[in-house]
């Protein structure tokens, strides 16, 4: 029997542990997997598929890491604890996360922009189903729902289970708040130019709006519209064309802050999110500047 198949997941847990402590940890985790596998099979089966055992193991590691991060207790000290009790504590922490996520979910639903997108609506519906299907006892690392709607800044793949959902909802709420700052007419015009049938397209709604809003802010326009005319694109071309990438990033940081203040969205997290979105644009912007064509970057109608 190749038990080493179960242990790659231990690596993130074993920072600075001695060989002896690593073995102690392995024994405790093995005992926990054995305990969880009995719960999974309800005592009806003495064996299970290795893939299932690996999933149970990953779930245990996910929960224990959650506990260790929150408690800040070093692993060397945690090794002396009863791991079944630790797992219980970890689940309690995860339940708090679920509660936070449900609250965020409600706020996200209420903050949906008035423009329609099928993938956004379906994803929100699916996240509602997530709360029904999420198995905190056996498979806490899994995300039992389909999340299609792409965010401007993808949620890191190092997040699992409820932590992924929490982060996703936080970011979606940021995007929704931003979109609410603009008229439905402007959003509709911009997105229709960005892609026809945006309502049924798998696109992120925030990014093209953020980019046009940024361009608008740089032009120091006071009229309340997202539209950037072709003449204004020429001005932006002149503004950007001699700037290096670091200078463009610096400009992004400064103007993101100004823009969020203007829109009354000045929490650091919203400013950072906007800056990050604009930063990701810069390689494409450089290419467009070289081609003297900003039509694919800023939308006009």
């Amino acid at each position: 029997m190749n038990t080493s198949a179960l242990f790659p997941f231990i690596d993130p847990l074993v920072d600075d542990l001695s060989l002896q402590d690593t073995e102690r940890l392995q024994i405790k985790l093995w005992q926990l997997v054995s305990y969880q596998s009995k719960r999974y099979t309800m005592g009806d089966s003495s064996s299970l598929r290795i893939e299932t055992a690996e999933e149970l193991f990953t779930s245990i590691c996910f929960l224990l890491q959650l506990y260790q991060r929150e408690s800040h207790i070093p692993w060397q000290k945690l090794l002396d604890a009863d791991f079944k009790e630790l797992l219980k504590e970890s689940r309690s922490l995860a339940k708090v996360r679920i509660s936070q996520a449900k609250s965020l979910y409600t706020r996200t639903q209420q903050s949906l922009p008035k423009i329609k997108n099928d993938f956004l609506e379906d994803t929100l519906t699916n996240i509602g189903i997530f709360f029904q299907k999420y198995d905190i006892y056996l498979f806490a690392h899994q995300i039992p729902c389909i999340i299609d709607y792409p965010l401007a800044c993808p949620v890191p793949e190092t997040l699992y289970g409820i932590e992924y959902i929490l982060q996703y909802l936080q970011q979606l709420l940021i995007e929704n708040h931003f979109l609410q700052c603009f008229s439905i007419r402007d959003l509709n015009c911009l997105l229709s130019v960005y892609i026809p049938n945006y309502e049924s397209s798998l696109i992120n709604l925030y990014e093209p709006v953020a980019i046009n809003a940024w361009g608008h802010q740089l032009l120091v326009q006071t009229n309340n519209t997202l539209n950037i005319s072709h003449q204004e694109k020429g001005l932006l071309q002149q503004l950007f064309q001699h700037l290096s990438s670091p200078e463009l990033h610096h400009l992004a940081a400064a103007s993101a802050k100004k823009l969020t203040i203007e829109l009354s969205l000045s929490t650091p997290i919203e400013t950072d999110y906007l800056q990050h979105t604009i930063d990701s644009l810069i390689p494409r912007l450089k290419v467009a500047l070289n081609a003297q064509n900003l039509n694919g970057i800023f939308m006009s109608w």
Partner: peptide
């Protein structure tokens, strides 16, 4: 027992069958 478990991609934590 252990060879058969491995061949069938299964794992046992207890006493087996």
């Amino acid at each position: 027992r252990f060879e058969t478990l491995q061949e069938n991609g299964r794992i046992e934590f207890g006493e087996g069958v």
